[in-house]
Design a protein around this nucleic acid. Structure first.
Lengths: 196, 196
DNA sequence: GTACAAACCAAACGATCGTTTGCTTTACCC
DNA sequence: GGGTAAAGCAAACGATCGTTTGGTTTGTAC
């Protein structure tokens, strides 16, 4: 286990990014319990014990991958809504960005959706916190919508995000693109027929 | 491993139902890889090896629990729509039944939602098949809706079911009931404000 | 070019995993 | 009440799990 704060300079041959990439790939594909430490290091020709120079536990590794996943989704969504004004347009752009980072080769993002915080009790609190922080973005986006009185905005948000996240289970790369799927869901919530 | 077809009479002290109940409980709570064979048999004071009198493998056990989960949800949903005529009313009743069997102490039902077929490769095909068979019910329900032209019914179904299934991740027993949640989602899709 | 820490190797630790094998108990049928 | 099969016990199998420990390589700074 390294010092809590790496006192000096890191080296150029550091394989930590490779560990993170492979961990993201396997956690996304097999889940936390389904991917072993040996599986993760095998693809980069590293020995199991060497991983513990970078991380105290397997759960700590998950926490870093998970945080990076949230960071990437947030970054993508915020870039997508920047510059747009219309509330519905902003929500649609956000949903498209959310779904694209989730379905288009986004191993890190998939971890955020697939892995349940309760799978890693020692870091569960942190995972939930990061996820809530991200979803706060959608709270604002839905808050800005010009909806009729009596429409529960919380339910609208949960319905939309739930539908998007669940698409991970039935999505097939050949068919409709993430962009098309996201737009359809937003339009269904909006109560308007599709425009294309 | 017992004979494929139990040639004679089963006995009254058979603890197979207890195994199924506990397996459903643990698979639902921890996932397939998160619940070990020893965890399952411990709660009923049974030895690990004894499980293999009833099942050839752990994955075969999952297949039985999964099938029972699908059966219970189907039964509940079909009972809920029986006798109703109005298409929207039928869909709402189905969603309420679906969500109630999923969130109200439905260990078997939760397994169907939580466990991914790919977690158990040797029975994955069977699991997918049973799930598809169940969802065919919703294909018909959505097909019967009087929707405007241009509305993609497949997207509507996937959105609704996705939102319902994902609610497993954020639902808390204290708050809104599954019935209320399901009704809100249906009404959001319908484009009508809530009636209560 | 020498010092030093970063980064990893090599090898094992105890625990737990799913599963198997041989034997024993126990309910049911006649 | 004896025969038979269902149901489970007892004990281990080899494999794999997450992790630790002590030593070795290697890049970088001075």
């Amino acid at each position: 286990m390294p010092a809590a704060r790496p006192a000096r300079v890191p080296r150029a041959d550091n394989r930590l990014p490779l560990i993170l990439d492979e961990a993201a790939r396997l956690f996304a594909a097999r889940g936390f319990h389904g991917a072993s430490v040996r599986d993760i290091v095998r693809a980069i020709d590293m020995l199991p014990g060497s991983l513990y120079y970078h991380f105290a536990t397997k759960e700590a590794l998950l926490a870093v991958v998970y945080a990076e996943g949230v960071r990437r989704i947030s970054e993508s969504v915020e870039a997508a809504i920047a510059g747009r004004r219309d509330p519905w347009e902003r929500l649609e752009a956000a949903c498209v960005a959310h779904l694209e980072s989730l379905l288009n080769a986004g191993d890190y993002a998939q971890v955020v959706i697939r892995v349940r915080p309760s799978d890693a009790p020692s870091v569960a609190g942190e995972l939930v916190q990061r996820r809530d922080e991200y979803e706060r973005l959608f709270v604002e986006l839905v808050q800005a919508l010009p909806l009729a009185r009596g429409v529960d905005r919380r339910s609208a948000r949960l319905m939309l995000l739930g539908a998007l996240n669940w698409s991970q289970t039935w999505y097939h790369p050949g068919r409709d693109s993430p962009r098309v799927i996201a737009r359809r869901f937003v339009n269904l919530l909006r109560g308007q027929p599709d425009r294309e």
